[in-house]
Design a protein around this nucleic acid. Structure first.
Length: 952
RNA sequence: GCGAGGGUGGCUGAGCCAGGCCAAAAGCGGCGGGCUUAAGACCCGCUCCCGUAGGGGUCCAUGGGUUCGAAUCCCAUCCCUCGCACCA
């Protein structure tokens, strides 16, 4: 029977579907040990590629393993459609965007006539769910309970999320406040990263506005200096405005501000009341003196064309001691008295300005900006190296600069440690204000300018100390795989702030008390694993019955409400049976958001026994060494890979090429070779299956192979327990293949004992490999024994077959063979006779002493020298002890004991036929000193476990 | 910059936590042989350098150190990857 993966895999898929093989219900398994495994539900805004395939296959392998160990395993899946990506994709499709059409047509092979079905968000999602994800998952043979699938846009799911958010609000973990968003000034609405033409990388920067003031027409006017380094306020020597840009005096929240006209709109978007009183060119303010709110100093306003009126307030302060830009600008101002005069500035005033240092730092002298500029020989603000100088000074000062004495309570502190506190203190006292600005220009796809707007929004209060403490508690109790990720969760918990959990539009659940908003994707996916436990049964409950009380009853029990709903109580049993989640498998980039949110919400909403038990982190996938990218068409679709290689090959490659948490690289040539390996495995198995069973009459090599098999079982099991799918499959497949290679050389395979051994080995390996390559192993195991591998229990190491002595002995044969081979190769001879000399008895006595005393030369010598015969041999013994101590070192006691029992001569005797076959030569075996025929005087070189050899 | 992970032989990638069976697994690629009319597949062997005796030399990013002994432990340096938020 030839290996035809597509055909046999299809048969198994059908069988699984027909029998509902992976539909898990409470009480299914004998052991009553439920195991609940989850993986983040896919987001079907596009097709499934091979990277996704691995994401879902890793948990599947673990699920299959637990099933074979007798657990009742639940592995469900659902579909995440919340938010805007799907809507955005549909919009781009409807607009007929070339790029989008190409991705759909060429990358994901959407048929032309189907494209119109994709023009609604759920139509789009449904297509990729059914045609890609679901089909792909079924092809891969994932052991999913399909009855439990749902989407996050389902009305029942929304009821569940509604329960979650009402509960959180009641517990004070939701809060209303202002938050910066990207806002298109043309479309007059918030936009997402996907809507942007330019500036996808842009970050929100919160500028501090230092409220300098001046008097104008008897009124105090605030000149808000925008800066990212508020702590430099003591070093301000002057201010700059762009004389050629438009500025305004405007009423901002009841006071008069001087800002650029561009800034007016920004301030409005950032929830300020702004009314322009007067507009004029920046020139008008040049020459004015403004008062530093912290120091009380008056400094002049100078003209500078490098000031960008469209950035923040358009008014900046100058700190020449610490800003290379400012330093160079000051030099230029001093050098150009004429220009100063044009703007009505007295050149003498400019000349009088000296940089004022505000911090000290080892790398520079008193005026860091000057040093950085002079070091590079920069003498113009156009010099490109100025940027680099600025970056260097900013960085070093931030991490190592210590504030000088004028800072009072902040003096002596490093900028990095003190900036936030400094800013907060002066904001409170009213000296500082703030506004947002992007780090680069941002343009909407519609061409409109995108600005930062502050919008009223709802936050999840991840900054709540009590909540953080609970989340840490979850981390400390769970199994983090690999262990080094544990710290990352703790780190993220500490670092998380308030999280805005609603959006203006998108699919998903409406905010219960304000249906204008929708709960965003990372916030509606924190406890849905609980929903799986009842999803299929919830479908029979009318939507309107899914009230707050219903879910309270379901999750908190009958005591939680006055009149518990009967159905809810029934469902509660199933939820209680499966929950908590034993392992969640997820990608490493989700630690900093999704997974930590998952921990937070479980910590709050569920009691400790229902908290997550473990998280396994998965690595990223590459394709032929490069990142996969669906927009560039650089992807492999699972369907195509399965078509080419078969699902078992795809699975085996994905699981075997790296541990789950390591990055892996899909390479065609490698996948092809996996396919070849599986085919070879199949062919060998077929031979065994059609050969008569044999009998248990075991030869030495048989016992050796069976002993190796037990080691393999043990190692594979241990690896699986640590989720090390690579080690496990490597060991069960390639590792054992090595043993078989030796076995085939050594053994007469036609013997009944060999046939019995081969069957035994095959059966065991099929079970070990069943989680990885379920199709081929089920098929072969059924052919061999009548039952599929997945229905056979996971193998246990069988002490009956473990035999260290046999392994030691066989190892000697291997070694002797290798040594002879080496000599033959080096001498390039074709031997007629191979003479093997086993070490003399007295040498063996020395070895026994080494075993007894352990690898301690002194101690062994002490013992050995008691023996008069040995003492006579003096130096010879000494050298032998050194050698044998090396042999003993690093071997465990059990092995040494087995060696001590081994009769070397008998072992080689038994291997004589084999050696004669191997080398096509006569083999003569002697014991050193016992009438050995020794023409080349080799026998003396014999050492225990290292016989001397002579070839001729 | 912060946080995390990593640099091993032509490539991929084990080993490192628990130092010595490590010239360093396995796969790929390459070379030789077998099978075959032939090719592919398959099977066997070889694949750092030197060597007509199982040995020797050099080696695991770089430079130091600890140790009888370091790919493995410590220190420093260089380089690479990922995450750093309102994007799922």
């Amino acid at each position: 029977m030839d290996y035809n993966p597509q055909e046999l895999e299809q048969r198994w898929r059908e069988r699984w579907a027909e029998t509902g093989r992976y539909e898990a219900d409470p009480g299914d398994a004998d052991s009553e040990e439920p195991t609940f495994i989850t993986v983040p539900y896919p987001y079907p805004s596009g097709g499934m590629h091979i990277g996704h395939a691995r994401t879902y296959t890793v948990p599947d392998v673990y699920a299959r393993y637990r099933r074979q160990r007798g657990d009742n395993v639940l592995f469900p899946i659902a579909w995440h459609v919340t938010g805007t990506p799907i809507i955005g994709a549909v919009e781009r499709l409807k607009k007929g965007e070339e790029k989008q059409l190409s991705v759909l047509r060429d990358t994901y092979n959407v048929p032309e006539e189907t494209l119109q079905d994709l023009e609604t968000p759920m139509g789009f999602a449904r297509y990729f769910i059914d045609e890609h994800y679901k089909r792909g998952m079924k092809s891969l043979g994932l052991s999913i309970d399909w009855r439990r699938e749902f989407t996050t846009n389902d009305e029942r799911y929304s009821k569940f999320i509604t329960w979650q958010y009402e509960t959180l609000r009641e517990r004070g973990l939701l809060e209303k406040g202002l938050h910066p968003v990207k806002y298109c000034t043309n479309e007059r609405q918030p936009v997402t990263t996907h809507d942007l033409l330019e500036g996808e990388e842009a970050e929100f920067q919160e500028y501090t506005l230092v409220r300098f003031t001046f008097e104008r027409d008897g009124e105090t006017v605030v000149a808000p200096m925008a800066t990212l380094r508020p702590e430099t306020v003591y070093g301000v020597t002057n201010a700059y405005v762009n004389p050629e840009s438009e500025y305004a005096v405007a009423e901002v929240d009841g006071e008069m501000w001087f800002v650029s006209v561009d800034a007016v709109e920004k301030l409005r978007l950032q929830a300020r009341e702004v009314e322009i009183r007067e507009e004029f060119a920046g020139e008008r303010l040049v020459g004015e003196r403004v008062t530093n709110p912290i120091t009380g100093d008056e400094v002049p306003v100078l003209p500078a064309t490098f000031v960008d009126a469209d950035n923040a307030t358009g008014v900046v302060m100058s700190v020449p001691a610490h800003s290379p830009d400012d330093y160079v600008a000051l030099l230029e101002a001093k050098a150009d008295a004429e220009r100063m005069e044009t703007y009505g500035v007295d050149p003498a005033d400019v000349e009088a300005i000296d940089p004022v240092p505000i911090l000290e730092i080892d790398e520079y002298g008193e005026i860091p900006a000057r040093d950085a500029v002079e070091e590079r020989g920069i003498d113009s603000s156009d010099d490109p190296r100025l940027k680099e100088a600025t970056k260097e000074v900013y960085n070093r000062e931030f991490h190592a600069g210590r504030l000088l004495d004028v800072y009072g309570e902040y003096a002596g502190e490093v900028v990095e440690d003190v900036r936030d506190r400094f800013r907060a203190d002066y904001s409170e006292s009213g000296a500082f204000d703030s506004m947002y600005e992007f780090s680069e220009e941002v343009v909407c796809r519609c061409g409109g300018d995108v600005e930062v707007a502050e919008q009223e929004t709802w936050f999840l209060r991840y900054d709540d100390e009590a909540w953080k403490a609970k989340a840490h508690e979850v981390v400390s109790r769970m199994d983090a795989v690999p262990e080094n990720t544990r710290g990352e969760y703790d780190h993220t918990i500490d670092w998380l702030n308030e999280w805005p959990c609603i959006r203006n539009y998108g699919l998903g659940t409406r905010l219960p008390w304000d249906p204008d908003f929708v709960i965003e994707p990372l916030s509606d996916s924190t406890i849905y694993m609980a929903y799986y436990t009842v999803a299929h049964r919830l479908r029979d409950v009318p939507v309107e019955e899914l009230t707050r009380e219903f879910f309270d009853t379901l999750f908190y029990g009958p005591e939680a409400v006055d009149e518990p709903d009967e159905t809810a109580l029934e469902l509660r049993e199933e939820w209680d049976y499966w929950y908590p989640v034993d392992y969640r498998f997820s990608a490493n980039d989700l630690i900093s958001n999704h997974l930590t949110f998952y921990l937070f919400h479980h910590a709050e909403l569920f009691p400790e026994p229902k908290w997550p038990q473990g998280i396994v982190i998965m690595g990223m996938g590459l394709l032929e060494g490069r990142k996969m990218s669906s927009s560039k068409g650089h992807v492999v679709l699972p369907g195509e890979a399965i078509e080419t290689y078969g699902a078992d090959t795809v699975r085996f490659f994905l699981l075997n090429s790296a541990e789950p948490w390591q990055d892996y690289d899909w390479r065609d040539d490698q996948v092809g070779s996996v396919r070849d390996q599986l085919e070879r495995f199949w062919n060998r198995a077929q031979e065994i299956i059609r050969t008569p069973e044999g009998e248990r009459e075991l030869a030495h090599v048989d016992r050796w192979l069976l002993s190796k098999l037990q080691t393999t079982v043990r190692e594979v099991t241990e690896a699986m327990e640590r989720s090390e799918t690579r080690s496990a499959s490597q060991e069960a497949f390639y590792g054992f293949e090595e043993h078989l290679r030796w076995y085939r050389r050594r053994a007469d395979l036609d013997r009944p004992g060999a046939r019995w051994t081969m069957r035994k080995v095959l059966e065991t390996r099929l079970r070990l490999l069943a989680p990885f390559v379920p199709f081929v192993t089920n098929e072969l195991h059924e052919q061999l024994t009548g039952t599929p591998a997945e229905d056979a229990p996971w193998p246990e190491p069988d002490a009956e077959f473990e035999n260290v002595r046999v392994e030691v002995e066989e190892r000697q044969v291997e070694r002797l063979t290798g040594d002879v081979r080496d000599i033959v190769d080096v001498t390039d001879t074709d031997p007629e006779v191979i003479r093997v000399y086993v070490a003399a008895d007295w040498k063996r006595e020395v070895f026994d002493a080494v075993v007894e005393e352990g690898p301690d030369v002194g101690a062994v010598m002490g013992t050995v020298m008691q023996d008069p015969d040995l003492r006579e041999r003096g130096d010879e013994v000494n050298r032998l002890v050194q050698d044998l101590v090396d042999v003993a070192r690093g071997r465990d006691d059990e092995t040494l004991a087995a060696m001590a029992e081994t009769d070397e001569t008998a072992v080689y005797e038994g291997a004589t036929d084999f050696l004669e076959r191997e080398f096509d030569a006569d083999v003569e075996l002697y014991v050193e000193g016992e009438e050995a025929y020794d023409p080349a005087d080799r026998a003396k070189n014999a050492v225990p476990f290292r016989p001397a050899i002579h070839i001729e």
